[in-house]
Design a protein around this nucleic acid. Structure first.
Length: 544
RNA sequence: GCCUCUGUGGCCAAGUUGGUUAAGGCAGCGGACUUUUAAUCCGACGAUCGUGGGUUCGACCCCCACCGGAGGCACCA
């Protein structure tokens, strides 16, 4: 154990950041420049090296460049709001203590302007040599753009009317060793933006905007569901069996039990077990994992909302999904209207509702349905130039036409209902057509945004459907699920009739934020390893 | 996995019939300035052009391989 703890170090005077000795050293250095040639030019130019030197100076001067806390009077945003109306030249007499990152610094002789930013907003710092005193003023000017600082001072407006804090005391809260990107252009390199999201968020307002949309949308969804009596729950991410969707899973190993486990590909089965247990309205917003490719619409880990409501059916889910999406849009953007490839689309309910078979007829001009003769269904695909596989029935064929030729052409929010029974192993048979299930998808901008069923709660039928899937898996389909016998057992205790809904949160945010890549809405998207970054990029301070 | 494009100092970015010192801006450094707001002005500095090979008298530029990124296809609800 160290005998000295930094938390116990005595408080220092704010603003005393540089000793007179070090100033003298600087001036001597200039005179002795010819003898300094041993410092490599690269080293002298390195901003990081300069800042390491600065850090050492601070410590030698008794200043901790990474102190513990700073007492603030409020966030910056509220100060701006409260005092937005004051006239140019006003001195309010009110004092604020604020903290944030120093985003800009404009030195003006014996006067320096800064821009201080926290999450809530930005405010100008008015830093005058006359107010601070020569020493503290000089030390303030030693701050770098990107440093975190705390300030105290009077709220005032400059001659030009800019709301400012006339700084009387200040304190370095964290020294930045690396410089921020271009103050005007920001960070443009998308690779760097994704890998170093912290920098992206610091300097690119658009990045902040996208995530504000995301947080507001998710928040609104939670709020609507809670208002309706839904309970938010958490279910396992490590699963012993694969189920709830068709997708290739990630497999990992659990040492203590010596078993392989799957990362979940859906939330569905555990949530429906909770319906059995009497938690009659539940939802989870959680990460799911699919071991598939990365593109503008897919990330291997992404966020799903799934909600289940007892005593409801898929018609109720249609109303719910409309409500949720509209609420998310309003919370995020203040309107249900979003731009989409130049056009604008209104997400306000009600949305168009159309059956899959009808929509295929409308858009493709062919009749195909899951009840028709298999040979006839194959002939339709042949006529459309689509390929079919031996084990597909007419239902799968119908779905293929829909996926390939219909979905991409739907822009306006549309509820496409009554899917083939064959492709929906967890949905309840249609109450009036045994070839169909009570299921719908929401399509917006050619993409599937949501998926919902009247949930299958007949244990006998569910077991039969699982066995069909397991047969596919045994035949080599890595996406087919397992027979989840515990789930069947749960159903045998009785699951109430229920409607279930799943929404792809990332895709919803893409629509609301009007961005084209899923990576723009995920804080840390999956990327290949960055093997160019090594410890050599973090040299210690040189001994010159 | 395949195809196309792409990788220039901390950041933005110019640079083609391959030609000698690789523009410019921001940041940083030195100086001036008490009302700036991407402050401005003056000065000096900073790059083995993603990595490794090859072609050539000569390569940021042409060829090959590898690494990273973007888009598309395939795969995939």
């Amino acid at each position: 154990m160290p005998h000295w703890h930094p938390a116990l170090s005595p408080p220092r005077t704010p603003g005393r950041l540089m000793s007179d000795e070090s100033k003298n050293e600087t001036s001597i250095e200039t005179h002795e420049a010819p003898e300094e040639l041993e410092i490599s030019s690269e080293e002298r130019a390195s901003i990081r090296a300069q800042r390491l030197d600065r850090l050492a100076e601070l410590r030698e001067g008794g200043v901790n460049p990474y102190p513990y806390r700073f007492e603030r009077s409020s966030d910056i945003g509220p100060v701006r709001e409260e005092w937005s109306a004051i006239e140019a030249g006003t001195e309010t007499g009110a004092v604020a203590r604020l903290a944030g990152r120093l985003m800009l610094k404009r030195e003006q002789g014996r006067l320096t302007f800064g821009q201080l930013r926290d999450r809530s907003g930005e405010i100008q710092l008015f830093v005058s040599a006359g107010v601070l005193g020569k020493e503290s003023f000089a030390e303030f000017n030693q701050l770098d753009r990107g440093d975190w600082v705390g300030v105290e001072g009077e709220i005032m407006a400059t001659k030009k009317g800019e709301l400012s804090i006339k700084v009387t005391t200040w304190e370095l809260l964290s020294k930045a060793l690396r410089p921020l990107p271009d103050k005007w252009k920001g960070l443009a390199d998308v690779d760097a933006r994704y890998r170093q999201r912290y920098v992206d968020l610091t300097v690119n307002p658009d990045a902040r905007r996208v995530f504000e949309v995301r947080f507001a949308a998710v928040d609104a969804i939670r709020q609507v569901l809670r208002e309706r009596g839904y309970l938010e729950v958490e279910t396992p991410i490590l699963n012993l069996q694969q189920g709830g969707a068709t997708a290739r899973p990630f497999i990992t190993h659990y040492n203590a039990l010596s078993i392989d486990t799957y990362l979940r590909i859906a939330l569905e089965l555990p949530l429906k077990r909770l319906l059995v247990g009497g938690l009659d309205r539940v939802f989870e917003i959680g990460r799911v994992f699919r071991n598939e490719g990365i593109d503008t619409r897919h990330n291997p880990e992404f966020t799903m909302l799934e909600s289940y409501e007892a005593f409801a059916d898929y018609n109720d889910m249609m109303v719910l999904v409309e409500t949720l999406v509209a609420a998310a849009a309003v919370a995020a953007n203040g309107t249900t209207v979003v731009g989409m490839r130049g056009a604008s689309v209104d997400l306000a309910p009600p949305w168009r509702r159309v059956s899959m078979v009808e929509l295929i007829r409308e858009i493709v001009g062919v009749d195909i349905n899951p009840a028709m003769d298999l040979a006839a269904a194959r002939a339709v695909l042949d006529g459309l130039g689509l390929e079919w596989k031996e084990h597909w029935g007419p239902g799968r064929c119908t779905h293929e036409v829909y996926d390939e030729l219909v979905e991409p052409k739907v822009t306006e929010p549309t509820i496409v209902f009554d899917h083939p029974r064959e492709t929906s192993p967890l949905a309840k048979p249609h109450r009036s057509d045994p070839s169909l299930v009570e299921r719908f998808e929401v399509i917006v901008d050619g993409r599937e945004l949501a998926n919902a069923y009247s949930e299958l709660n007949d244990p006998i039928e569910q077991l039969a459907r699982f066995q069909e899937e397991a047969a596919h898996k045994a035949a080599g389909d890595p996406e087919a699920g397992d027979v989840d016998l515990d789930y069947i057992r749960a159903l045998e205790y009785g699951m109430p009739p229920a409607g279930g809904l799943g929404i792809g949160i990332d895709r919803l945010v893409m629509i609301l934020a009007e961005v084209e890549s899923i990576r723009e809405v995920i804080l840390f998207p999956t990327l290949r390893p960055e093997n160019s970054l090594t410890e050599d990029d973090f040299p210690p301070r040189s001994n010159t």
